[in-house]
Structures are given as structure tokens and as C-alpha cells.
């Protein structure tokens, strides 16, 4: 077995409780996770179970209270590590797209290429256009995000995430904000990425999609990994009561 690209060890994350004196809310309570190259790990769990928080912790958008976030064996949760450099190796796609509204689609895609990866204007534009072509949006390169449909915006956000050739792609319920008939176009794209061997951690409520792409399914409950295994194990033959409850309610 090859070494993990990403490992979480005993990750703990709390948010301050509401109001003064309230007890802090424990969202992640000692989470371990391993993601090897070309692997796809799917996070499932009830709303509020901490899937987004876990992804934000991995992408260093949240500071952990305790535990390690190892990227290629280096603990990037250490405050003395260059977080910008670590973040540039990963890419996140958000539930609400979070495109930059003041930039055209192409400029959304090329911003980080130019500012973070040091590409020249022409080179960045060429790579950006190629990536937009790949997600089927080359004809919208000069449009502003608010001129796109939800599915198009999310595909643009995926292009923006992919263009820097990230080693690890983080997807946070990327189809949850979409109209049902637009979900397919985004999922198809993700399946294609998966088939190319993109390493991904995916939070989703789309169980069919999870079954299709996951190497490992991780069920989060009460801030902990409650059950994990192959899709066949976790989704079709869950061993624990909570997992069964959760899956039953989804149906």
C-alpha cells in the first residue's frame, strides 16, 4: 500500500458556543482519515454532522483545536507551515459556487494561475480556456457569473478549482444548490474526473453518485467517524444502527 497523500489524525474542532459562557460546540471529535493518490473518499452524514467543517479543515480554512492534517507526511496544521502553498496544492468547490461576481468566467478561472502559480497572462488564458472547454463552458468565457445558470456556475467553479492542477480536489455538496435537472451535468463531470484518477474527498447526499465513484465511504456522526468501508459495506450492508437510520431517512 502506498503512503497517503492526505492523512488526518485525531482532528478536533470546536466552535465557540452561542453567547457568553455557553459551552463550545464540538463539531469534530478525533477524526482519522486517509486518502491515497487517485482515491475517492466520500463523506456522508446528516446535515450539521461536520462534513463541511472537515473539508474546510483539510483546506486550512479552519484552524483545528487538536490533531494533525498531514499532506504528503507534512503536518500543514502547524502554524509555522506555509498555508498558502499547502492550499495551492488542493482545491475546493463549494456548495454555493462562490465564483467572484466582479470577474468574467475566464478571469475567475485564471486568477490563481496568475497570482499563485505565476503564469503569464497569455499562458494563463490558454490554460483557462482549455479547462473551460473541458467543462463545456468555452462559449461563456467572457460572461459574468450572474449571467450563468446554476449548473454552469458550478461547472465554472470546478474549472477554476482544476486549472491549477491540484493534487487533491475537495467537493462540498456541489450539487445541493442545483435544480434537479442540472444535477446530472455536474455529476457527469465529476464521474469523468474520477475516471481520470483525480484524488477527491467528496461530501454529498447523492447516494447513487457515492456508490459509483467512492473507493471508501465515511459516515460522520456526533463528530466522529461512525462507520467506514467500501460503498458495498457502508451503503448496502451498514453494521451500525445510526448508519442504518441515516440511510433509511434518505430514501
Amino acid at each position: 500500500m502506498s503512503a497517503s497523500l492526505l492523512s488526518l489524525r485525531g482532528v478536533r474542532k470546536t466552535y465557540p458556543g452561542p453567547g457568553r459562557g455557553a459551552a463550545p460546540k464540538v463539531v469534530l471529535d478525533g477524526v482519522d482519515l486517509d486518502v491515497t493518490e487517485h482515491e475517492c473518499v466520500v463523506l456522508i452524514g446528516a446535515s450539521g454532522s461536520g462534513k463541511s467543517t472537515l473539508l474546510r479543515v483539510i483546506d486550512l480554512l479552519e484552524e483545528v483545536d487538536d490533531g494533525q492534517v498531514l499532506l504528503d507526511g507534512v503536518d500543514v496544521a502547524d502554524p509555522w507551515v506555509d498555508a498558502n502553498a499547502a492550499r495551492a496544492r488542493m482545491a475546493m468547490v463549494f456548495q454555493q459556487y462562490n465564483l467572484f461576481p466582479h470577474l468574467r468566467v475566464l478571469d475567475n478561472v485564471t486568477l490563481a494561475l496568475r497570482l499563485v502559480h505565476g503564469r503569464g497572462r497569455a499562458e494563463a488564458a490558454a490554460s483557462g480556456l482549455a479547462m473551460l472547454e473541458k467543462v463545456g463552458l468555452a462559449h461563456k468565457a467572457r460572461a459574468y457569473p450572474d449571467e450563468l445558470s446554476g449548473g454552469e456556475q458550478q461547472r465554472a467553479a470546478i474549472a477554476r478549482a482544476l486549472v491549477g492542477a491540484p493534487e487533491l480536489l475537495l467537493l462540498d455538496e456541489v450539487t445541493s444548490a442545483l435544480d434537479p435537472e442540472l444535477v446530472g451535468e455536474v455529476l457527469d463531470l465529476l464521474v469523468a474526473l474520477r475516471d481520470e484518477g483525480t484524488t477527491m474527498v467528496v461530501a454529498t447526499h447523492e447516494m447513487g453518485f457515492a456508490r459509483e465513484v467512492a473507493d471508501e465511504v465515511v459516515f460522520l456522526h456526533d463528530g466522529q467517524v461512525h462507520e467506514r468501508g467500501t460503498p458495498a459495506q457502508v451503503l448496502d450492508d451498514p453494521q451500525r444502527e445510526r448508519t442504518r437510520d441515516f440511510l433509511r431517512r434518505l430514501r
Partner: peptide
């Protein structure tokens, strides 16, 4: 979430302010 998106792409604090936050703030 605009800041999160920018930082997630690897932009530094300063780059995020200059290229993402201020243009929107001014508009």
C-alpha cells in the same frame, strides 16, 4: 465565502484583499 474561495485557491491575504474583496467593496 468570497474570502474562503480566494484563500482556498492559494491567494495570500493581501492578494485576496486587493483582487477579490476591494473590487467588490468599491462597486
Amino acid at each position: 465565502s468570497q474570502v474562503a474561495a480566494a484563500r482556498s485557491l492559494g491567494l495570500s491575504r493581501g492578494q485576496t484583499v486587493r483582487r477579490v474583496v476591494l473590487p467588490q467593496a468599491v462597486r
